[in-house]
Design a protein around this nucleic acid. Structure first.
Lengths: 195, 195
DNA sequence: CCTACCGATCGGTAGG
DNA sequence: CCTACCGATCGGTAGG
């Protein structure tokens, strides 16, 4: 009789991904050792290979999970909010008010996706493109007067600004996350000049 | 009689940095092999070690050179242009209209600085902070009415948007670089909404 | 004792 | 689940 899959199989998978995310975010994917991931979640290196066949599989699972949940959060907010300006605010909040958990994964997505083999990047890049399309759609409803080709560049400017925020914004600093969201939304909608 | 330092010592140093920049930008610093850098500039690996004592020294020299020249270009444009709005446009142009040469180095700076030992990051992070301060100063002259602490966050939003541009913008696409600069400057100054 | 290189190889490390 | 270990690789070095 084959042994049953351990009851806490999913818990352990999550624990591995959490430890790995912290290490990848700190040291970068290529510098993070399988040995270190194992130690960080109180497991042996061999144990890791029971859950993930390769190091790349850990990174891939992490990024796919993160991008799918980001996309789901965006779609959900679009369903709940109808007003375009409120939708933008909500889109910004999803990026800025991320938990430390999601923030680490977001950094890893931005920094380390390129270390996967090209073929494994494909489905992840497709998810990223969906996020960009959502933003472009949102911008279209905010200002329908532009030429069609211009929405994606504007979406990329917005998302670039938001992605970069992860590198410098700390929620425990002088600026509360609500205030940062307000400022970003206002900057994007009304610009930087005084009225 | 000691041999003279080769006449083309500086040329070779530049050739090494160019090959390394291309490789680092494509594969990432940790994946780029000294062997590959050597091959790319028609040299032997040992020759590399004559010009740079370690792989980290190559990355450090590249980033320092790039950040110093970025800073110099910014300072020069500030000296040549007095009007704040024109200064912003000029700041944006420095980022967007970079040569392929500088663009690769900029990508490497954004992606691979973290792979240097902490101590070697210090002087480079200081240069980055100067770039941010220049931008904050510029924004202050554009809109002096804000609270003092707000300029740096706005500078980081601008620079984030500009840094991200490197990841998606191709000068040979539908949008000419002049048009992109105009759109970014207008977005930042006037916002996204129609007048 | 210096600089400018080459061919060969060592010591240590990493994923598996 | 552990220790031992492999095949491959890579940054850096030694002799000439």
């Amino acid at each position: 009789m084959p042994r049953e899959r351990a009851d806490d199989y999913d818990d352990k998978t999550k624990a591995i991904l959490d430890s790995a995310a912290a290490l990848f975010a700190r040291a970068g994917y290529p510098n993070a050792k399988m040995e270190d991931i194992a130690k960080a979640c109180g497991a042996s290196k061999s144990m890791l290979y029971h859950y993930f066949a390769t190091k790349d599989d850990i990174l891939f699972a992490m990024l796919e999970e993160h991008l799918a949940s980001l996309l789901k959060a965006i779609e959900q907010s679009f369903n709940e909010v109808a007003d375009p300006q409120e939708r933008l605010r909500s889109f910004i909040e999803i990026y800025v008010q991320q938990s430390a958990h999601a923030r680490r994964r977001h950094m890893v997505t931005m920094n380390d996706l390129r270390f996967l083999p090209k073929a494994r990047q494909v489905p992840l890049l497709a998810l990223e493109r969906k996020v960009i399309s959502s933003a472009a759609e949102l911008l279209n409803s905010l200002n329908p007067q532009l030429e069609a080709f211009a929405y994606k560049p504007y979406a990329l400017m917005l998302i670039g600004m938001l992605n970069w925020t992860e590198t410098w914004y700390r929620a425990n600093g002088v600026i509360k996350s609500k205030e940062l969201c307000d400022r970003i939304a206002r900057l994007f909608l009304r610009g930087f000049l005084p009225d």
